[in-house]
Nucleic acid binder design. Structure first.
Lengths: 140, 140
DNA sequence: CGGCATCCGCCAAGATACTG
DNA sequence: CAGTATCTTGGCGGATGCCG
């Protein structure tokens, strides 16, 4: 029996405080749900790839993100200890975001995911066309 | 200049058909956006950790997922060539989902992300409490 | 510049009931 | 069992405007 299976057949849901992303009400699931979204992952990847960046740099870097979503996602990442926000009290003010050790750890796991997607995108698109051709809408 | 930066300062957006998840309208971004969601990632992790599973097994395995979202996410994964859906024409019918090579590749990148979240959940929760304590709501 | 507040459309996602 | 169909709604996420 693997570690995963052990966790999921789990004896005590919280006796030893084991975390299990598969469990609906486990704290780790809540964290996972917050991290597992488009913008958060792209922000982590951008900070990891390009180093510390200002708000507007991030907005340009992560194509299509609105100021609102960027602010929200950054706030979440900051709140969870993944990202450090530094304000330089100049005029105009300058705000720089950077990865904290925890965030850098995560970013190094996320980056491969992005690269994989880029490498395999074409293949997945081809699979789609084939699938769509085989299922002319409304079969099944 | 890193590979990432090269891609993002990108000379030709589509000349060499380079894919860039940071670009809003790049196909790879579309794929990334579909994969980078809670349910899809958890399904991939479940299939990777526990092997081929039936619909209802998956629903039990991935805590809190509704039949609708499970169906939708599985359909997407199948459509993109990541997951294989096999119907055994019995009564009652049996449908088994399994990873295809492409999906297995991805799942092996995603699994570490889940494990990391479980390992660091406590730490992130602590960071949150500290953050929330330092920002008693409505500061800034 | 780097936000926060507000309004709002619209789609994701839950609940429920029905089918093969 | 493994879905599909329909309805409803919460909240994601965009647009805009104001502030420090």
């Amino acid at each position: 029996m693997t570690t995963e299976e052990t966790a999921r057949t789990g004896a005590e849901p919280q006796a030893e405080q084991e975390h299990d992303v598969f469990a609906q009400l486990c704290p780790s699931r809540e964290m996972f749900a917050e991290l597992a979204d488009k913008w958060s992952l792209l922000i982590l990847m951008s900070l990891s790839a390009c180093g510390p960046q200002r708000f507007s740099e991030l907005q340009r870097g992560v194509g299509g993100v609105s100021r609102k979503m960027l602010t929200q996602s950054l706030r979440n990442l900051e709140r969870s200890g993944l990202v450090l926000r530094t304000v330089f009290p100049e005029t105009p003010p300058r705000v720089v975001y950077d990865l904290r050790p925890l965030g850098r750890e995560l970013a190094e796991l996320v980056a491969p995911l992005g690269h994989w997607t880029e490498r395999r995108a074409r293949q997945m698109l081809a699979a789609r066309e084939e699938f769509d051709a085989a299922h002319p809408e409304g079969s099944r």
